[in-house]
């Protein structure tokens, strides 16, 4: 790991943009929402970063496509259709999303479609200096500052307005070759650690979240099925939470007739669909909406999954709360679980 001083981010961004496509959170032309969009030639638009920039759409679709073809059968043979990906950079990824990508890296470790895209991608993280609306990364060990193993390059805006650049992987180190950078001193790294403590203290109280996690793990009396059923009644099966969740990775497989023959495709699935786990006989181990709500939150907060993945399945981005029409996003649910009898 090496660290450097950096005058501004535009310099780094232009340099990385020369390696291949560079995507960053930016407002679309209508001036409204933030999206992951290709870099345009103007300067990095968020040089003076005051509000964290977290697009409502997570970056998982860069690796795990919403819909993709796996192979096709042309009448004689099966032909695999692996994506052919040029080197690309995701610039300005926040710590929560980087932790989610690290989580998906484990889930899709043996998935060639995911890995092909992932291995062609350089991840550049930016430390968040303020909590974002609904974000609670601090409470689930996913931020606010970028975890070293989760990004190739980490950018940290210092109090003096200059940037500290940390190259945390070999790929990151290689990517900044050619930039004339001065090494940063130890003091700036220590400053960063102190700053993280300061920023962490700015987050709102999430004691309800910890209480809910205890109950989900049955260490505090568990959760009554009537509570899950009441939450299930509010699930309108929109699939917004699972689509927006940066760690949700379930997919369905289907066939589609195309010009090439019969293609096997996969698409994002949602465990909130009644048919997600329905068996051919019609039997369904999660036929009730309450059972599905329970399963979803267990996947996010159960210690048994945490043991497998080294962390909770929730990275504290708060997107599920924003997209849920039925008021059963993470804050609403954990508040209910914390206080339910």
């Amino acid at each position: 790991m090496r660290s450097y001083q950096l005058e501004n981010l535009s310099q780094l961004r232009s340099h990385l943009g020369r390696r291949g496509a560079l995507f960053e959170p930016r407002q679309a032309e209508d001036g409204g929402e933030l999206h992951w969009l290709p870099m345009v030639d103007s300067a990095w638009p968020h040089e003076v970063e005051e509000t964290p920039l977290l697009p409502l759409t997570s970056p998982k679709s860069f690796f795990f496509k919403e819909r993709e073809q796996l192979f096709y059968f042309d009448g004689k043979q099966f032909v695999e259709t692996l994506p052919d990906i040029e080197p690309q950079t995701l610039f300005g990824v926040r710590s929560c999303d980087l932790c989610a990508i690290a989580y998906l890296d484990q889930f899709f470790a043996a998935d060639p479609y995911y890995q092909k895209r992932r291995q062609a991608t350089l991840l550049v993280g930016i430390d968040c200096l303020h909590p974002c609306d609904g974000g609670f990364c601090r409470s689930v060990d996913a931020g606010p500052f970028v975890r070293e193993a989760s990004a190739d390059l980490i950018c940290h805006r210092q109090a003096d307005g200059h940037w500290l650049l940390i190259a945390s992987t070999e790929a990151g180190e290689e990517a900044v070759q050619g930039l004339e950078l001065k090494a940063a001193n130890e003091a700036s790294l220590r400053q960063r650690d102190l700053r993280q403590k300061e920023v962490s203290e700015k987050f709102p109280d999430t004691s309800y979240l910890h209480a809910a996690i205890k109950r989900i793990n049955n260490s505090d009396g568990g959760v009554a099925h009537t509570t899950w059923d009441a939450l299930g009644l509010q699930c309108l099966t929109c699939s917004g939470c699972t689509n927006s969740c940066p760690t949700c990775s379930c997919f369905a497989i289907f066939e589609q007739t195309t010009d090439e023959g019969v293609a096997r495709q996969r698409c994002w699935d949602s465990c909130y669909f009644e048919a997600f786990q329905r068996e051919a006989s019609g039997h369904n181990p999660s036929g009730e909406a309450g059972q599905r709500v329970k399963r979803y939150w267990e996947h996010k907060f159960s210690e048994s999954y945490a043991a497998t993945f080294g962390r909770y399945g929730c990275v504290g981005c708060g997107r599920c709360e924003k997209v849920c029409p039925g008021v059963i996003g993470v804050h609403s649910v954990t508040k209910r679980l914390a206080t339910a009898s």
């Binding site: 409204g32 929402e33 929109c238 699939s239 917004g240 924003k322 029409p325």
Partner: peptide
């Protein structure tokens, strides 16, 4: 928001600042 890649619709996303839906879509919309 209609996500477009190479002239194809590849996904949609809800709009947080929309006066009616405020970041939400139903399953048909998605």
């Amino acid at each position: 928001g209609i996500q477009v890649c190479d002239g194809k619709v590849v996904g949609v996303e809800p709009q947080l600042n929309h006066p009616v839906s405020q970041g939400k879509l139903c399953t048909k919309g998605w």
